[in-house]
Design a protein around this nucleic acid. Sequence first.
RNA 1: GCGAAAGUGGCGGAACCGGCAGACGCGCAGGACUUAGGAUCCUGUGGGGCAACCCGUGGGGGUUCGAGUCCCCCCUUUCGCACCA
Length: 817
Amino acid sequence: MAYEPLELEARMQKRWEEAGVARTPEAPGRPNFYCLEMFMYPSGRIHMGHVRNYTIGDVVARFQRMRGKNVLHPTGFDAFGLPAENAAIKGGVHPKAWTDANMAAMRSQLRRLGFLYDWDREVVTCEPDYYRWNQWFFLRMYEKGLCYKAKRPVNWCPECATVLANEQVENGTCWRCHNPVEMRELDQWFLKLTHYAEELLRNLDDLTQWPPEVVAMQRNWIGRSEGALVHFPVEGRERPVTVFTTRLDTIYGATYLLLAPEHPAVGEITAADRRPEVEAFRARMRSQSTHERATTREKEGVFTGAWALNPFSGERIPVWVANFVLMDYGTGAVMSVPAHDQRDFEFARAYGLPVRVVVQSGNLSAETLEAACPDDGVLVESGPFTGLPNREAARRMGAFLEEKGLGQRTVQYRIKDWGISRQRYWGTPIPIVYCPECGTVPVPERDLPVLLPKDVAFTGRGRSPLATREDFLKTPCPRCGKEAQRETDTMDTFVDSSWYFLRYTSPKESSAPFARGAVEAWCPVDFYIGGIEHATMHLIYCRFFTMVLRDLGLLPFGEPVKRLMCQGMVIKDGAKMSKSLGNLVEPDEMVARYGADAVRLNMLFVSPPWDRLDWQDSGAEGAYRFLARVHGLVEEWAEDLKGPAEPGEGPVHPLRRKVHQTVAKVEGELEGRLKINTAVAALMELANAVLAFAASYDRSPGQRFVFREALTALVQLLAPFTPHLADALWERLGGQGFLVDGPWPAWDPELAAEEEVTLPVQVNGRLRAQVTVPAGASEAEILEAARNHEKVRPHLAGRTVVKEIAVAGKVVNFVVR
RNA sequence: GCGAAAGUGGCGGAACCGGCAGACGCGCAGGACUUAGGAUCCUGUGGGGCAACCCGUGGGGGUUCGAGUCCCCCCUUUCGCACCA
């Protein structure tokens, strides 16, 4: 029978379904393993990026189950979000209907690919059963002071008509639509990410099974820096201006002060002496978009007319406003030290402000300086601190600062609190009521969930659509009963994805977000796979949530994921696959042609999982041919292999050795470094060896034993990669049940060991011959064999052997003169 | 600009600890079987000589008996951050 993957796969999937093989096993006494892939946004259809991500996960999940573990391998949908709402605005479909239709289509695509998901545990975040717990967490955090409302300048995307979190702004543009982001002063709900900044940073050291680039990106994102707050008295202002600096040692070189255009002190200190140019400058800065501000490199500024006092030197220095000083980092004010900071240097040169060297690291002179010098050195012109090495000086100056009440040492983080308010419909309603009497009142737990109303007007602009529903908006105050108004913003969908992995452990739990016992049994996640684009969004947020839930007493651990892998991007014609570029490749057509097994295998084989993969439609054909050969082998010999077989006497048959080596190789890859492409290559090698063996197979019991062992092992090893074919062939060979429940073949190191080794023989490092010696040969025996090799002798003749090197199992090298 | 990763046949890639460079596959070439083949099977496939041998992992230097792998300089590509004081 020819290899007909469509028929075969349909048959196997039906039988898996009937037998319920995907149900999560919870056998007592077996170790648990939680294999998770980042769940999907229901954008429409599955594309090759999904196929790659989920195939890698499926291989690991199936392998671990074959190894005898209980494996939790769930999936679901990150079902809230803007595209559903945009579709509603554009096409008049309700976001729920749009989402449901997409999920149905994607589910069937996933099933077709044969992924072993326990669909009974599916989590869909737009369901009230799920999002009520978002509201519940919100209230718990509110009680603990980890959730608060504040009026703050926030990132606003005019295109999406909503606020964005700091993490969701890329290069001054919206992470979703890539239009320029503006700053707007809005009342927003925030989660206190900064409360965990230190722990988020510190724990990174322990995430040794995370890709180092993700750790680096998070470290950079958290952006810890040690420094000091220093108060500079300003003439004509009661309160001083406080700056943040990491270079307190350079304070004697601070020749002027800089304020961000938005700094509140600017208005106060210019009030006495209204300088129109200051207001004009601020107005111009205000009119710039975030993107414009972020990309302008020229240093621009204007003198405020005010003067400050350097608290260390007592020097009178001018106060300027500058475009490159950011209001949202530090205090929005900096002391400018042009000799030792490049930005300050450029500014000073542009406006003719004084440059003073205060850390001498050679023979720097203010007159000849061409760029700022940030190097370490010895303090000069620094009052009582002159002569000290600058690092030592920084310590003493910090102590001095605090002693004299001039400021304090502090730590600054770049990471900010997480703004979660979204002025949109398709998300979790924020469970807050505003009462004219009682103020901000949290919705009592017994009234959860606050249901998202179905019918609203999708204006797509301005206020949240929820505000258009009087019956949603107006509600009695939970505290005093008077008429009050609900919060109409919804939550950022990243809240939904911050804890979904916990919900999978007990998805039907109705009295809590998750069952404590179930979470303790399965979590933290053993292996998590997803795209690196979430390095500073989802992967920070879910770590934060885990810490918060731990501190709320809900979890016994503070890190969600033990091992993380980021699969490489699937690109097409040099560009990332995306709907907007129109280069999405869906698996369906190829699956219809070559079968799911071939598509999966090709995806795994063609490059290491974490490398970028430029998609070529042609690849699956090779995988198909390989599978057809294996299929043909089993079809041809299955009957014969039922005949008498016994292990023969004498040396280990080379095919047996290859079998045991291959099991060791594949097992090692799937257990360890996961360079899955080389595991697939090893399977192909084994298949080639079996094919070659079959050509001279003599049907003796001894050979039959070797043949049967080899073919059986090959089929078992294929099971995680190409489960349909493997199960079908397993049945053909007389195997019981489905391979996902094992057994995984055992390998014997003695059978895998080579009896002879072939060593390269070099003369002066150049390859001259190869010698084959017994595996246990001594150094002397190896050298003897090498010396006498006919191709080596001429190279040694008439020369003096200076050195003989024999590295067991590796190489022989003669150094001659 | 700063930071990280990477550069290997016509292509995807392999070489895990410094030890035979190019596993495995695609493609290509020749052959077999065929009415035919874009099916299947066999053989070959880094370059030059077609033998001995020489050259070869972005370029240049170095360490070593031995370097794709380690060190220094340079080039290129990709990714991340982007005035973080």
